[in-house]
Amino acid sequence: MVKLRARCILLGDAAVGKSALAQMFRSDGAHFQKNYTMTAGVELFMKSVNIPESSDSVELFIFDSAGKETFLEACEKLWKQPSVLCLVFDVTSETSFRSCERWLERVRAHCQGLQVPGVLVGNKSDLSSRREVEMAVAQEWAQSQGLEYHETSAKEMENCEAPFVSLAQAFYGMYQDRVQTIQSLA
């Protein structure tokens, strides 16, 4: 049995639904916050993800970061050596999608050459009539950045676990790979 620990940085523009998504994941879908409460700085919580067909798990320490630029400096202080990244945009906002590149650059500056698995999340998929970013476009950009693409609706409880589970599994896969490498060295 092994319990891994991963520092998961949750980032993206303000009001795209990072905290809503984090809350849905944390409460197993029991709690959706309808009214917007801006995150000021970073909110941290931990949730454990079990790896199927094993007794192993990954504890995700989720750093829900503010999207508002004013808090950027404070957030960046807590982004040291991330294990995994969760980059979120709002599918009804082209602007929030275009910001992703800049968010990625910012956080990669803290990766110190580490290989950091990441996902791109298009949230608010329930607002289909207001969609500005097509799935295929987002998917293509995600792929070009080595990110796995997921669409979610925190409001409708759609797919909210998937991005986090996929990150936990990627981190777990990396661990197994490293153990093997090290075993072959000695």
Partner: peptide, 25 residues
Amino acid sequence: SGDEKHPPENITDRKMETFWMSTGM
């Protein structure tokens, strides 16, 4: 941190093949 398969005792067992592995962060 720890993995049962690679426990900390391995640090002082004088064997190079066995090791303690950190499990993240």
